[in-house]
Design a protein around this nucleic acid. Structure first.
Lengths: 187, 187
DNA sequence: CTATTCTTTTATCATAAGATAAATAATTAC
DNA sequence: GTAATTATTTATCTTATGATAAAAGAATAG
């Protein structure tokens, strides 16, 4: 649990009572490679924090498996388009390396917002930062060739390429696996 | 100002005092077509609400003008990657139709968060919704041909195509103006 | 109202990436 | 440790989109 509170400190340090309140609505989950942490079609009622392992959010478009994003140690995962709307998600969370995860019950968390403004502020800041990342990602997707996007990934997040099967990286970059392979063989 | 408070109601209704506090840090701006509401390089210290008019956020990549997003009546604009990080923005906000805009001083707004948790909650929800939109947009960008993206825009936001010069739409879709023109002539 | 500028379309050619198939290479299961 | 499965690469062919140039059309300024 300590890793989580360390992570929180970067956004908004919490009082002991607030930490305790979050600990009470959280649990530790260990889950093995290739398992789905959350399936497609379920409404997201949990915010996850990865202590160890790798995960991705993925969905199917016209029967093709598409990776929306990868997640590594010390980050928060949630299918926000479900979490914030209450609608079922068309996306799943899959574990790509055996993982140790902290699961925070979001229904109870949102209730804590009323009694602990500091918790509301914390998660406001966490999701503001995630929003910024997403906006920046759009910038990287507009008007860049597949090769440029691959090279950017190689520079900015080489761990993705080292820890994740390329077939998942391809759809994340918005190209086919074959194209990715071609690009990697530079031309 | 009323249009703004009507808009807020959809997210989190405010007390009269909170509305008054926001009114005090806001001002009305009228600005004409083609003007920049905020230039590139400035740090975003204002959250705008469009009462009337159209705007876009744009930036230059390798000297090419790229539209990140369009904004119409009854929506909030801010260059969040600057607003939430305090760093200067590489993006500008340009007015595409003579506009009437409410400008909220974000520095003062963020101070109000301490005295009015309801205001913090309101903007948390506004930006959560904006975050969800952005996540959904990424989905539309992965693995879709330019033609599919054009048709999606035509269905989901025909007002963009009716009120905005096509040269700006092209970069928004991630294609050249010439390609867009070709697609519009269906092939 | 005319000239100038800006926007959109059309045309041609070049190229990056898709589709499909098949060959290697690497993992996993037994 | 071997077979079976899964992942990656290589090859060929096709197609969508980029780049460039030029023409047509629309908007704006004087």
């Amino acid at each position: 649990m300590d890793a989580l509170f360390q992570y929180f400190k970067k956004f908004n340090p919490l009082s002991n009572e607030a930490e305790k309140a979050i600990a009470e609505i959280s649990s530790i989950v260990t889950i093995t490679k290739n398992k789905d942490l959350q399936p497609i079609g379920h409404t997201c009622k949990t915010i996850y924090f990865i202590k160890k392992g790798v995960a991705r959010i993925y969905y199917f478009k016209d029967g093709i498996d598409i990776t929306e994003r990868f997640f590594f140690e010390n980050s928060i995962i949630a299918r926000v388009e479900s979490l914030f709307t209450g609608k079922p998600s068309r996306k799943a969370i899959q574990i790509l390396e055996d993982a140790e995860i902290i699961a925070i019950n979001s229904t109870q968390l949102f209730k804590l917002y009323d009694t602990f403004p500091e918790i509301e502020r914390l998660f406001r800041k966490i999701f503001e930062a995630a929003y910024v990342e997403t906006v920046n990602r759009i910038e990287g997707m507009q008007f860049h060739s597949a090769e440029e996007r691959y090279n950017a990934l190689l520079n900015e997040a080489p761990n993705v390429l080292m820890r994740v099967p390329l077939k998942y990286v391809a759809s994340f970059l918005g190209i086919t696996q074959v194209s990715l392979s071609r690009i990697r063989g530079h031309r």
